[in-house]
Amino acid sequence: MPVKISTRNIVKNYGAVEALRGVSVDVHEGEIHAICGDNGAGKSTFIKILAGVEQPDQGEITINGEARRFDSPQASLQAGIATIHQDLAVAADMSIYQNIFMGAELTRRVLGLPLLDKARMRKDALGYMGQLNPSITDMNAKVTDLSGGQRQAVAICRALRWNADIVILDEPTAALGVRETEQVLGLVRSLKAAGKTVILISHAMQDVAAVADRISILRTGENQIDLEGGELTADNLSHYILSGEVNRIH
């Protein structure tokens, strides 16, 4: 598969702290690419840069070979990247459909005025949700009343609605139980099946090993190891992350 999104020597400093010291990653189209690393390795900073939440001090991002710069979350979205942040960034007191369509509400003309098309948003939201979690049917329900896995589904629906080619999931299983984790991994696979390029950030090596096609491991702000295919077992990954040593199987 061709490279979908690529970074070269991304550097980001917060004052004297070097969060990223030159991260270069190639993510191939239609694959699930995991980015792993211990706390402080720079995963979150890297994701924030791809999502346009933070801007890099140096380095280059290309999508389909074209250089891009994301000055804002809007710019990243417009480039076809949907990011599902770890804190999910949902408005808990608003409804499911309002969250799914947040920032991209549908309108219809009434007496020439562009008014919200709530009926259509509810219907479309139900369609998106049906692909992920058909058990959630009330699109007027407030997100605050949902479980962690259900909230994750809402956040992923939002990514589907953006019609993004690239979906970034930041620690999607962090706060979930075993059964919900399984559900979310199922969601990740269904994104891949739908032809999306998925970037998965995770601590949970079992999860990564279960779904990833390729892995980049960050240590102290640099990516040190890139792995693929058969090298991906949870034990191997933990070993790499802790030791930084490449213990190639073959």
Partner: peptide
């Protein structure tokens, strides 16, 4: 109408409910 039936109205509400979520959604 402005507050309940327009995109601007929803954007004001989303900003008030969760500013960071609204910002990351492109508002």
């Amino acid at each position: 109408t402005l507050s309940t039936q327009t995109r601007t109205g929803v954007h004001l509400q989303a900003t008030g409910e969760n500013e960071e979520a609204a910002r990351r959604s492109g508002i």
